[in-house]
Design a protein around this nucleic acid. Structure first.
Lengths: 136, 136
DNA sequence: TGATAAATATCACATTGCGATATAATCCGC
DNA sequence: GCGGATTATATCGCAATGTGATATTTATCA
């Protein structure tokens, strides 16, 4: 790999792709902030909500958010302090904490997710066009 | 908007999309680090390289990276200290700094960009599938 | 059982982006 | 063209966040 030279068009695609990702992330961050959350807190809640029942642990959040486990630990701690989740010790493995969203978190997340679904629909043509151009 | 309820499938798509973006960003960050750059520095160089000639200013980088101008200012300052770019005062508007990559930066960026182009090709099927599912 | 590994937590640190603010240059209405 | 508003960039102090090093508890397995 790496043998094909990088053209001006390649740079433009890569730069535009980054810009579009940043637009999405800026959108997401502002919506999360409006709901009283940081971007990381929002994504942790989303990862937990989307996990199979009983699968949401600190380690799982770390894996899905691509963080070190001890970074996820702090993130979860802050969410717990905000009243957005509760942890229960796992019965099978008492080292693990099973994470559950509170009703408050469920409501916030449902609202954020509807908004994000719309934004993703809006950005889809742009992103797919860029991916297509990158994939030629 | 926001009237359609959010289903479990929606949460899964949003969470998977985030996870895929994070995979890409983790890939990117590790490659940049291997080249001695932070993720932000890499993306600033890319934005400058992809700009129209004479268009690359601090404000332009701020706009493309979605940062406040004074945050871009610090970022550019660090790149200059690393010998990766030079700034020239603009002739038309002497408030502006025109940014130019050094040969060293050009080489690093060409290598990173070839790698990123490959990674984007690799992730394309996954991302487009998720976008399609989000857009139904 | 005893050594090793895994899950989570704590601490000190570095990075980074921001708000508030400053300075210099440009623009615009009169 | 003059004076005030605006723009481009810079500096300072701050808050948030991820990490490495390390610790603790529990599980696994030879």
């Amino acid at each position: 790999m790496n043998q094909m030279p990088v053209t001006d068009a390649d740079y433009a695609i890569l730069a535009d792709f980054r810009h579009t990702l940043r637009l999405f992330m800026a959108f997401s961050e502002s919506r999360a902030a409006a709901a009283g959350l940081t971007a990381q807190q929002h994504q942790a809640l989303l990862a937990i909500r989307a996990a199979r029942p009983g699968a949401a642990t600190i380690g799982y959040v770390a894996e899905r958010l691509i963080l070190k486990p001890h970074s996820a630990s702090g993130l979860i701690h802050r969410l717990e302090a905000l009243g957005l989740l509760m942890r229960r010790s796992s019965v099978d493995d008492r080292r693990q904490s099973l994470l559950e969203l509170t009703a408050k978190a469920e409501m916030i997340l449902a609202d954020l997710s509807a908004t994000h679904r719309e934004e993703l629909r809006r950005l889809r043509p742009l992103l797919t066009a860029l991916l297509d151009r990158a994939g030629e």
